[in-house]
Amino acid sequence: MKKPTKAIEKTYNWDDFFPAEHSHHVFRSKFNKGKGSFYHAQNFYDLAFVEDGKGTHEINGHRYKISKGDVLIITPKDAHKVTASSKNELFITNIGMKPSVVTHAKRRYPNQFSWFQIDDISKAAFHLDEERLAAVHDAIETLALEPREPAAIDRFILNLTPLIPLRFQETKIAPDWLVNAMEIFREERPLPEGVDALVRISGKTPAHVSRSMKRFYEQTPTDFVNDIRLQSVSHQLLMTTKSVEEIAYDCGFNNLPHFFKLFRQTFTVSPLQFRRGQQQGTPNQ
């Protein structure tokens, strides 16, 4: 990653602004035409959602245009600033997160949280269309009203991940038919039908789908479907009182021993431990 080419004007520390015990904070910024923030560093993670307007984002010596619907990822390693254009005001909603919370989330959700593990700064931003931005806005409003506890961030990440364009995670340019099929599957979630549904949506043969997914995403169709199933399972464990077995069957896991094995491999704990840990508002170890 290219190092900053200009001096850092300010450094923001979590404990200077927020209670140490809080896991996250939601805050909003308005920049008048031609105005911006200091070029600053910070010791926490930040998801910045451009709610309206246009401007530029300068980060680690790179400068990009930003506009409504853009989502920016800032880590404790970065130095950055945002500036409104000379003709537009800029409105940004930020979700600041303590590093320990992000570390625990990556450990609990290695697949669902992969989009946040960015080393290439050119990929550290993506765009949401109007519909997805509206859904994210609603999720942020809910998050702002919840206790500043890790469980709230868990729910937010689980709700946010399906809205992130799959193209953001690509290392190669996948064909539109595959990207569209995967996005439709993620949106409609025909989980009991599983891989058969993905193949049907794609309009291709099972072998073609399998070869293409391995080439462009380095995973099998079964791996992809199981990731989506596990996202749904974890969400239902947090948001419903249904039994673990009922949730597993609803999400297409008909082999319970296999389900329990996959769940523990992904989240490092059993489904019941996951549910109890989140209800208590403490990270799973």
Rank of each mutant, 00 (worst) to 15 (best):
F168E: 06
K98N: 03
D154L: 07
D154P: 04
F126D: 07
A152N: 06
L166M: 12
E141C: 09
A144F: 06
I164S: 01
D138N: 12
H104N: 14
E149F: 10
H104W: 13
P165N: 02
N94L: 07
E141Q: 15
D154A: 10
P110C: 02
L160K: 00
T93W: 10
D138H: 12
L163V: 00
A152M: 06
A135F: 05
N111V: 13
D120P: 06
V136E: 03
H127V: 09
L158Y: 07
Q112F: 11
Q117V: 15
D119K: 13
E131W: 06
R107E: 09
I95R: 01
L143C: 04
V101F: 02
S122F: 05
P165L: 05
I140G: 04
A134M: 09
K106D: 12
S114F: 11
R107G: 00
D129N: 15
I95C: 01
L166E: 06
S114Y: 07
A144P: 02
E131G: 05
E130S: 11
D129K: 10
S114D: 11
V136T: 10
K106T: 03
Q117E: 15
D138P: 03
T93Y: 10
T161C: 03
D120R: 08
P147R: 05
A152E: 08
R132D: 15
A134N: 11
I157S: 01
Y109L: 15
E141V: 05
P162A: 10
F113Q: 03
A152Q: 10
K106G: 08
F113T: 09
L158G: 01
K98I: 01
D129Y: 11
T103L: 13
A139D: 14
I121C: 03
T93Q: 08
A144Q: 09
T161H: 01
G96Y: 11
M97W: 10
D138T: 12
L166F: 10
G96A: 14
R167F: 02
T103N: 14
D154H: 13
I95E: 06
P147N: 03
G96P: 08
